[in-house]
């Protein structure tokens, strides 16, 4: 096993995760430098979220090891959690609570001192341009508002590494552009960002991209370099390269517990939202 690179913000060494016989990720190795903007690209079910969950300590790897800001994700999970901010693929908010209440819970969970909590909540609301609706329940928020709230929440405790799991999923172009500008501002402040995405323009704007397929990392490098190296036709784009490397076949995957829960809720079978 290679020794860890001390300057790396995130380092994954041969990490893998199996669920019984199913391999969700296998021998994935990469490093993200401090202040780098890194995107994981891959078809549905390729293992992007698994890698993300291993790095954020939500899932233990069944092989390999990984560090975030020098802390091991398994043995020093608590230290890793203090360093990172996370925006999940779909909102992880309590919809019966107000925006301010959601933020206050976050402040407590991350140990922000009581005297600073109010200020932290107000600042996060201001950052997300949600001050006016801070006392409204999140249930009434649009998808874009929820995303802004979650992004503001993720950086509330001043993490040094930000994980974004398809942050612009389901947003309209206006919402996507707005969120992207906010993410860009964080980048200028030196935040390390690891994101997963399906949108090629977003991936092209990153410092480096890792293409992941069937649980394995199949290519890694700056977007322009990947295009130059793997393009077969002149004028090829990152999307062409992506399709070429991961194939044209549509991916079928069974619904996850999350998707089943969501659809159950949509049918009106949910009592507690």
């Amino acid at each position: 096993m290679t020794p860890t690179t001390p300057s790396a913000a995130i380092e994954a060494i041969e990490i893998g995760r199996r669920y019984g016989n199913v391999v969700a990720a296998e021998s994935v190795s990469f490093a993200v430098a401090r202040g780098e903007f890194f995107a994981l690209l891959g078809p549905n079910g390729a293992g992007k979220s698994t890698v993300m969950h291993i790095l954020t300590t939500l899932v233990a790897p069944t092989s390999g090891q990984a560090t975030v800001m020098g802390h091991d994700v398994v043995t020093e999970a608590k230290a890793v959690r203090r360093e990172l901010g996370m925006v999940f693929q779909d909102p992880a908010l309590d919809e019966r609570l107000t925006a301010a209440e959601n933020l206050e819970i976050h402040a407590v969970l991350y140990g922000i001192a009581r005297r600073d909590r109010r200020q932290a909540v107000d600042e996060a609301l201001t950052w997300a341009s949600l001050t006016e609706v801070g006392k409204r329940r999140v249930r009434a928020f649009s998808g874009g508002m929820k995303r802004r709230l979650e992004l503001a929440r993720a950086i509330m405790h001043k993490p040094r590494v930000l994980f974004l799991d398809e942050p612009t999923l389901g947003l309209d172009p206006q919402g996507r552009r707005n969120l992207w500008e906010r993410i860009g501002a964080l980048r200028e402040n030196g935040m390390t960002v690891l994101m997963t995405t399906h949108y090629m323009p977003e991936a092209e704007a990153c410092d480096r991209v890792g293409i992941i397929d069937k649980g394995k990392l199949v290519a890694i490098g700056p977007p322009a370099e990947l295009v130059a190296k793997h393009a077969t036709t002149p004028g090829a784009t990152l999307e062409d390269v992506f399709i070429r490397m991961t194939g044209h076949a549509l991916r079928t995957e069974s619904a996850t517990a999350r998707e089943m829960t969501v659809s159950f809720g949509k049918r009106g079978g949910e009592h507690t939202r």
Partner: peptide, 21 residues
């Protein structure tokens, strides 16, 4: 108690699980 299932899959609990609390 059972609302935990909902909370874990699509609610606030993921946010709690990724926190140092």
């Amino acid at each position: 108690a059972i609302s935990l299932v909902w909370d874990r899959e699509v609610g606030l609990l993921r946010e709690v699980m990724v926190s140092p609390a």
